[in-house]
């Protein structure tokens, strides 16, 4: 473990401040709680919010998994996992089922999460209304009044123009039938996994200095209309490596003549399936 730094890098006062924000966030699902986010030794945009939340909840007996784009071996996931291995000395894993805390950027694992697990999302832009109203002060008032007409109009305009909603990731959700929330830039395919998830879901936005949460088993509804129900999409293929037809796929170009394969974005899910096939 790193000399000269507290367990999991942050000092205990800061962790306590973050935990207070987390408690508020859990008490009002989907509501953004401002918090005194600290500067971290990783740049803003690399997951400073998620790292602070993870640092605040991590205990010595935890097992941490970190993924980026669904994979444990992407450089940023490696870097963050190393950061906690170095500053907290906690056990790390790539197996979803073995992790007690999972920090993620842009995906929710394919394996269903359990009640004894916590998933921490890295959030670049916690305000779901920002593209429609850039003033965060104005957005705050709209949340207070549950005034979400602007977003419904945006969805309606998409349908009028394209015949369908043209948001494919960071697809807005209504949490506990009260707060409109940005699910972070996960593909809309992952949105249904958030609904009544047994695991606690925590969201940290470092640069924007906001924390929010979805308590276990809370209703999370992707915004839609009765005659245009929400539909998650994935590439209509099977994984080249494990054959899965249900998982979210990455498209990988294999040559410059249009050759491509599709493989699971969730590397642990894919590897587990390949091992089972081999056995």
């Amino acid at each position: 473990m790193s000399e000269g730094y507290n367990f999991a890098y942050l000092d205990e006062q800061t962790k306590r401040m973050i935990r207070r924000a987390l408690l508020k966030a859990v008490a009002v699902p989907g509501h953004q709680i401002p918090f005194g986010a600290r500067e971290m030794p990783l740049p803003y945009g690399w997951g400073t919010g998620g790292i602070q939340v993870t640092a605040a909840i991590l205990g010595q007996s935890d097992t941490l998994k970190v993924i980026d784009q669904g994979a444990d071996d992407t450089t940023n996931a490696v870097s963050i996992r190393r950061f906690f291995a170095r500053t907290a000395g906690v056990a790390t894993t790539t197996e979803t089922a073995r992790a007690s805390v999972i920090q993620t950027r842009h995906r929710i694992p394919e394996t269903t999460l359990r009640a004894d697990q916590i998933i921490v999302y890295q959030v670049p832009q916690p305000e779901p209304l920002w593209r429609l109203e850039p003033s965060r002060a104005a957005c705050r008032t709209m949340h207070a009044l549950a005034e979400y007409g602007l977003m419904h109009v945006k969805l309606y305009e998409d349908i009028a123009r394209y015949g369908q909603v043209a948001i494919s990731y960071d697809y807005p959700v209504m949490v506990n039938d009260r707060h409109l929330m940005a699910p972070s830039p996960i593909p809309a395919f992952d949105n249904p996994k958030m609904d009544r998830m047994p695991a606690l879901q925590l969201f940290g936005a470092g640069r924007e200095k906001r924390i929010y949460a979805i308590p276990p088993y809370t209703s999370v509804r992707s915004l839609d209309f009765a005659d245009h129900p929400f539909r998650p999409h994935r590439a209509p293929h099977a994984c080249t490596l494990c054959g899965s037809r249900d998982s979210y796929l990455d498209e990988v170009l294999t040559d410059d003549r249009g050759g491509r394969i599709f493989v699971c974005s969730d590397t642990d899910y894919c590897a587990t399936r390949q091992r089972k096939d081999a056995a």
Binding site: E39, P43, Y44, D68, Q69, P185, F189, H233, Y248
Partner: peptide
Amino acid sequence: VEATGFVEHLKLPHYVDFQSELEAIRRL
């Protein structure tokens, strides 16, 4: 520090979101 982080984070992988955009544009 905030600005450079967020501008430069665009070089981190975004292929999951880009894939969902690819599928969306193909559908459209």
